Simulated scan of single mutants.
Amino acid sequence: MEEKARIMDETAINRALVRISHEIVEKNKGVEDVALVGIRRRGVPLARRMASYISGIEGIEIPVGVLDITLYRDDLSSLSSQPVVHKTEIPFNISDKKVVLVDDVIYTGRTVRAALDALADIGRARMIQLAVLIDRGHRELPIRPDYVGKNVPTSSDEVVKVKLEEVDGENCVVILKR
């Protein structure tokens, strides 16, 4: 795949995450009973960054969890006969919490559906909201994010790749052509 366009640099990513963090505080009238849960892989560092920004805004730490959705995917059999399952780490009770699911890109909505199923097996949150860095459209399920860093209209032969320092060694968002 070749890089077609670089649509966000490190500054733009940070600016979007700060804005989303402010929106989370505003929409929830503070952060009492708010927890962030990053969808493994790149949703996790995004959730941790937003928790840090929210802490700076509100002066309190909010809990951050890690959600692995591998076994909840509806395309599991097409991925591998032996999928690699990572650990879900949610060291707090989600019951009666306002959980903000965090992911890097929303596309068809199927990852979010799997995350909702995984969360339901953990507990019954009071409310679940969704924050994504990139919304590229092309939904196959009726799922809409509450917080979006950037809307990026794409064609189906393009791939949006979020690169984060914690995973990839750099911070940027690129569009790749298949």
Rank of each mutant, 00 (worst) to 15 (best):
A118I: 01
I60T: 15
F92N: 09
G137E: 15
K98C: 07
V102K: 03
S81E: 12
P63V: 15
G123M: 08
Q82V: 11
V99G: 00
L76G: 03
G109Q: 05
E61A: 12
T111S: 15
R126H: 14
P91K: 13
N93I: 01
L116A: 09
V100H: 00
K97D: 04
V99A: 03
S95P: 01
F92Q: 09
A125T: 01
R73P: 12
L67I: 00
S78K: 11
R126Q: 15
H86Y: 13
R124M: 09
L76H: 01
I69N: 11
R139A: 08
V105W: 08
A131V: 02
R110D: 04
K97V: 06
L76D: 01
F92D: 06
R110A: 04
T70N: 05
S95K: 12
V105R: 06
L141N: 05
I90D: 03
Y72F: 14
A115H: 02
D103K: 08
G137H: 12
L67D: 08
V84S: 05
V84D: 07
I143C: 06
R139G: 08
R136Q: 06
K98Q: 07
V85S: 05
S77M: 14
Q129P: 00
V105K: 07
H138I: 14
V112M: 02
E61R: 09
Y72M: 11
T108K: 04
E61S: 13
A131P: 02
A114N: 06
I60D: 13
S95R: 12
I62M: 10
D135E: 14
N93C: 07
T70A: 07
G123W: 04
R113D: 04
S95N: 15
D68Y: 08
K97T: 06
D121Q: 08
P83A: 11
H86M: 13
A125Y: 02
I106V: 08
L119H: 01
A120L: 14
R73F: 09
D74M: 07
H138F: 05
V132D: 08
G123V: 00
A118H: 04
L116N: 04
D68I: 03
A120Q: 12
R139W: 05
Q82C: 10
A131M: 10
L79R: 14
V112H: 00
R110V: 00
S95T: 14
L71F: 12
D68V: 02
L67Y: 09
R110S: 02
V100Q: 00
E89L: 12
T108F: 01
M127R: 14
D117N: 13
D121V: 15
V102D: 05
D96Y: 10
G65L: 09
L133Y: 01
Y107V: 01
R126C: 02
L71H: 14
V102E: 04
L71V: 01
I128F: 00
I106S: 05
T108W: 01
D117S: 11
E89V: 13
Q129E: 15
D103E: 11
Y72D: 12
L79H: 10
V66Y: 09
L141F: 12
I94G: 06
T111L: 05
Y107K: 01
A114E: 03
R126K: 15
Y72N: 13
K97Q: 12
M127F: 10
V64S: 13
H86G: 08
Y107T: 05
D74S: 12
Y107I: 02
E61Q: 13
I90W: 02
R126D: 14
R136N: 06
D68A: 10
I62P: 03
